[in-house]
Design a protein around this nucleic acid. Structure first.
Lengths: 234, 234
DNA sequence: ACAGTGTTATGATAATTATCATTTTGTGAT
DNA sequence: ATCACAAAATGATAATTATCATAACACTGT
């Protein structure tokens, strides 16, 4: 079950900037039918969008905001699988091979999801080969990114890991050397596989070495090239 | 370019045990067309099947044998992404979103690949929605498995990691408590993200504690339940 | 304003893991 | 058979990382 914060609204697809990004294979009629069944769901920062184990009812992608995909193990510890930006799919490749989610999703910032009934999505994919291929390409790219990132993180030591994720936030997500960290230090740790204390410690070291400036959650990369070197070395 | 060891042969799809497993959505005509363009390629143990960066020309899956998918970084170190068994796809995720391979593949055992021209594959996917969905499901399942396994390995300590991969070989690949390790200790290390020495040391500890019996590459799991506990704890 | 709670921060210490050095064993090529 | 080379094995040591303890700070609800 999806927890709806606020009103679900019909998406005006003619206005939707995502239209060409995702569904450039539709003709007018198909697009109309598609959009008729599509809804937008707003979620406020911190709310849980999907809980691991619940039934997959929607295919969804992120229209605005920022969300994290994560797993919780038996002892209650979380592992962040990836952080999804606007235009990213929240539904991963498993969407068609599984009936239940193998991960949870929660909103790091106020976010809006576009959701389409999964059965409807399958129907369209069955009929429209171009759509199907487009979807496969996109889903493949997302999975690929997650796997490669996981391998990149794995081979780094603590300094390399922290440098890597700082650069990721700066380049991929905020496109700015100054940004507010959307996640706590603990969540950073859950993302890159280290302890919270060591994330904090490493950030402090970077600050002392004047590689970054820290003001609470606000972070400025002062020497991105040096961070790059640290990230690549590990 | 695919390095062909031995003769490429036409696949007799009527005999092929993989037919129903993969392509149960074809009618007779489609299957005939499909099989006309499908070839089998044999590779001997140790040979490189795909090199990172080369153009994707075929969609391929493993008919028999065992192969590893891996990446090589700038310093020449390998990371094993996954080990593929018969019935597994060798073409992953990126197959439709990339034009070049982002990983290499080599044969751990004498192996036979079934290869289909990627353009032909796309054509069929465009026309046949059922086929497309089936393919998406399969690709999704593979990607999902890789991502989850990567997360599982990441959260374990050295003992947990080694126990995990021993159980994987025993259960998932050989379905026997006694098996010949298809990979060297170094490759195990590259698979689970530790040093070769620590893999060897941990195996020796398991041997001393009578959890396993080691005879070169032959390994017998003497106390799988204890290994299970070690794997789950980490 | 205040208590309660979680996050950030830092230090001391323990545990884990990697590195380096060396020996033994196994394997393939000639 | 034997030479050469890679793999397996082990120990000693160094480096890295986690754990535990504690404190300051910030945020939330009353």
């Amino acid at each position: 079950m999806i927890y709806i914060i606020g009103m679900a609204t019909r998406c005006d697809c003619n206005q939707c900037e995502l239209r060409t990004a995702f569904f450039n294979n539709f003709n007018e009629e198909e697009l109309t039918v598609f959009c008729d069944r599509k809804i937008e769901l707003p979620f406020s920062r911190g709310s849980i969008i999907i809980s691991e184990g619940e039934e997959i009812k929607y295919f969804s992608y992120l229209k605005s905001g920022l969300v994290k995909l994560y797993r919780t193990d038996a002892s209650g510890k979380d592992q962040i699988i990836t952080i999804a930006c606007p235009f990213d799919f929240v539904s991963l490749l498993g969407i068609f091979s599984e009936t239940r989610y193998t991960y949870s999703v929660s909103a790091l910032e106020d976010s809006v999801l576009c959701c389409i009934d999964i059965r409807h999505m399958k129907e369209i994919a069955m009929k429209n080969g171009n759509f199907s291929m487009n979807l496969m390409e996109r889903l493949g790219a997302v999975s690929n990114k997650i796997i490669l990132e996981s391998l990149e993180i794995r081979k780094r030591n603590t300094h390399g890991k922290v440098a890597y994720i700082l650069l990721k936030f700066s380049r991929d997500i905020y496109k700015d050397l100054v940004f507010d960290m959307p996640v706590s230090r603990r969540e950073v740790a859950e993302n890159i596989g280290m302890t919270t204390e060591n994330v904090i410690r490493t950030l402090s070291e970077f600050r002392r070495e004047k590689l970054i400036r820290i003001n609470g959650r606000e972070i400025e990369l002062l020497k991105p090239d040096d961070l790059e070197r640290i990230s690549t070395y590990g």
